[in-house]
Amino acid sequence: MERILFGDNQFFAVNHISDEKSRAQSIRFKDDSAILQTLDISRDNGVQTFMCTTHDRIANICDAIRANPEKYKGYKIFPCMPYAHKYANAVTELGIAGTLKQYVPGNFIGSMFKGGVAFLSKDYLSIMELLIDAEMKMFKGIDTPVIFLQNVITDLLLGLGMKDILIAFHTYVAKKYQAEAGFITMNMPMLLDVLENGGVKNPIICSSINKVGFRMSGGKELYEKTLRTRQFRAIAMQVLAGGAISPKEALEYVCNLPNVESILFGASSRANIQETVRLINQFDQSRADMILN
């Protein structure tokens, strides 16, 4: 994984501190061309990986990438699935069974309900595989070396104690897409325990890691200790903690943590993208110099 990954929250009006900013982002990124232009700015600054949800509009971005193979040579996408609000709103409207009927491709669910097919464990994992395939369709022909499970699903399965499904996700993504599974979570230390116990070695885990301890369940100290003492490939997200601290202070903290392989950030303006990349490179360089000396 590259040191810096570009995220997509800003494109889909996900703002953790302000509904007003959310609306402004919705307006700003109404057209796909605005998203593509911003991705170009991130690429100009050397960021060659886009980590994004499987939002419907990402399909259009994928079309544009496929249509310009020369321009996007070497560009990678890390899909994060599912786009949870699509399913959450559907569950409110259709119920859990109705949602599965709507989103699982083919007649699989319909025939399960109608025929009273035995509910064997294989069937549930098949449903998961069909859902993964449905979400992955839009990325056909694009390099997706890591495929993530979104935190709302990772953490739901974690709380429900459904570790076999987390592990089945890991296995299926490797088998079908020759990709590594990644897990986004707000409960990193707890998840790492479960994955390790399930035999997943050196897992890719993306979690909130920031100086103020925001959304670091179990506490900042436990996160720092886990980074120091355990083996996994950490991605830090929400490094700015929703804007609660200055970018400089925030990035200095994250860059100086041990064992953080990548930093995920999203921004809308050229100035903010440039500045974030510059700061990460600067802090990385001074840390490297310090280690050498």
């Binding site: 953490d155 709380g159 959304r215 670091m216 369940s217």
Partner: peptide, 8 residues
């Protein structure tokens, strides 16, 4: 926001 033991 006070931190919680488990977040969902």
């Amino acid at each position: 926001t006070d931190p919680v033991h488990f977040y969902l």
